[in-house]
């Protein structure tokens, strides 16, 4: 085992430990925790026994194990970017709703308390039914 493998393995071990802790303590979602732990283990196997990737690659009709790892990495990264982007969009939407809520709360003081002669709208609390 060369120095590079040791380095990669130590990083993977830390990552695995962190994911496992997060999974067991319920900090992360169950599904993403399992995905992370699985990814760490697959990466560790590929680092310790690179021949395994060659065998899998050959079975899939890809010449080299390194190519297989590269393809997988590209796909995983693209999916990851996409999921992050979607998350970000929902986050932005949440921020907007928060900002809107604060803005409306602040602005309500500008409205006259009672809405004279208005039966259809006005104060939201009066619209409950």
């Amino acid at each position: 085992m060369n120095g590079f493998q040791v380095l990669i393995l130590s990083v993977l071990t830390l990552l695995f430990a962190a994911s496992l802790t997060a999974l067991l303590r319920g900090w992360s979602g169950r599904r993403e925790g399992i995905v992370w732990c699985g990814l760490c283990m697959i990466a560790a196997v590929a680092t310790i026994w690179p021949q395994v990737t060659v065998r899998v690659a050959n079975a899939l009709g890809i010449g080299r194990g390194a190519d297989l790892v590269f393809y997988c990495a590209v796909v995983v990264m693209m999916v990851g970017f996409w999921m992050t982007y979607i998350r970000l969009r929902y986050l932005r939407r949440d921020v907007t709703q928060l900002v809107r809520h604060i803005a409306l709360l602040e602005a309500r003081s500008q409205l006259p308390d009672a809405d004279p002669g208005d039966d259809s709208g006005g104060n939201p609390s009066s619209r409950q039914h």
Binding site: V99, R100, A103, L104, D118, G121
Partner: peptide, 25 residues
């Protein structure tokens, strides 16, 4: 005057304004 604490874009501002107008009757 309704204030968005953070800039959220014109669509968001319109929606806030519309909701406030509905509140105002």
């Amino acid at each position: 005057v309704i204030r968005h604490v953070i800039n959220r874009g014109q669509g968001a501002a319109l929606q806030t304004g519309i909701e406030f107008a509905l509140m105002a009757g």
